[in-house]
C-alpha cells in the first residue's frame, strides 16, 4: 500500500503519515508515541493556521460537519481519532504552550496558539502602527472585525485580551472603558529599550 500526501478541496496538503492506519491509535511504545504526538500537533497547528481556526474540542470528533472532520478522520482508510487520544494531544499542547484550555476550568476544548499571545501582541501593535491608529481608542469589535480585512480579522476576544495584557505590561497599550464594554489605546513607544 502506498502512502501519499493528499490535497484537500480547500487546498490544504495532508501529510502522508495521515494515510497510515496506525497513526490513529495511541502507541504503547513511549518513543513512538512522542513522535506520533509531534506529528499530530504539527498537523493540527498547520491546519488551524491554514483555515484560521482558533479552537479544537473533543466535540469536533463526533461532528462530521466540523471544519476539522478531514483531519480528525480519514474516510479513505476508515480510521478516526478517538476521544482519549485527542484528549492526550490537547493536554500535551496545553503543556507545551501550543494551545491553552479555554475556559481554563475544563479539559475538552482548547484555544490554539498557531501564533502565541506574544506573536499576536506584535501583530496587533504593528497593525496599529501601519494603519495610523496609535493614541486612538479602539473597541475590540473594531479590531476583530475591521472594515479592511487584517491578520486580526476574526481573532477571538479572549485571545485578543491576552495579547493586550502583554502590550500593557511593556507600556505599549492602555485598556480603556468605553460605552459598551472595553477598548484599547495603543501607545507610541517613547524609547527603544
Amino acid at each position: 500500500m502506498a502512502l501519499s500526501t493528499v490535497t484537500l478541496p480547500s487546498g490544504f496538503l495532508l501529510p502522508s503519515i495521515h494515510a497510515a492506519p496506525p497513526f490513529f491509535t495511541q502507541q504503547p511504545n513511549a518513543t513512538t508515541q512522542a513522535s506520533a504526538t509531534g506529528h499530530w500537533k504539527r498537523l493540527i497547528l498547520a491546519f488551524a493556521r491554514f483555515h484560521k481556526l482558533y479552537t479544537l474540542s473533543l466535540a469536533d470528533l463526533e461532528d462530521t460537519k466540523s471544519p476539522w472532520a478531514n483531519v480528525l478522520r480519514n474516510e479513505r482508510i476508515n480510521r478516526r481519532l478517538l476521544p482519549p487520544y485527542l484528549s492526550a494531544i490537547l493536554q500535551d499542547m496545553n503543556t507545551s504552550n501550543q494551545a491553552t484550555f479555554e475556559p481554563p476550568t475544563q479539559k475538552t476544548s482548547v484555544l490554539l496558539y498557531w501564533n502565541t499571545p506574544e506573536q499576536w501582541a506584535d501583530i496587533l501593535y504593528d497593525w496599529g502602527v501601519s494603519t495610523g491608529q496609535l493614541n486612538t481608542i479602539l473597541t475590540f469589535y473594531e479590531i476583530t472585525e475591521p472594515a479592511l480585512e487584517s491578520a486580526l480579522s476574526g481573532i477571538p476576544v479572549v485571545l485578543l485580551k491576552k495579547a493586550i495584557v502583554l502590550l500593557q505590561k511593556n507600556g505599549r497599550a492602555q485598556v480603556i472603558s468605553v460605552a459598551d464594554g472595553e477598548g484599547v489605546k495603543l501607545l507610541p513607544q517613547t524609547s527603544v529599550p
Partner: peptide
C-alpha cells in the same frame, strides 16, 4: 513493538 519500537499498533483494524 514495545521494546524496539520497530512497528506501530493499529487498534482500528477491520
Amino acid at each position: 513493538l514495545l521494546r524496539d519500537g520497530l512497528c506501530w499498533l493499529d487498534e482500528q483494524d477491520e
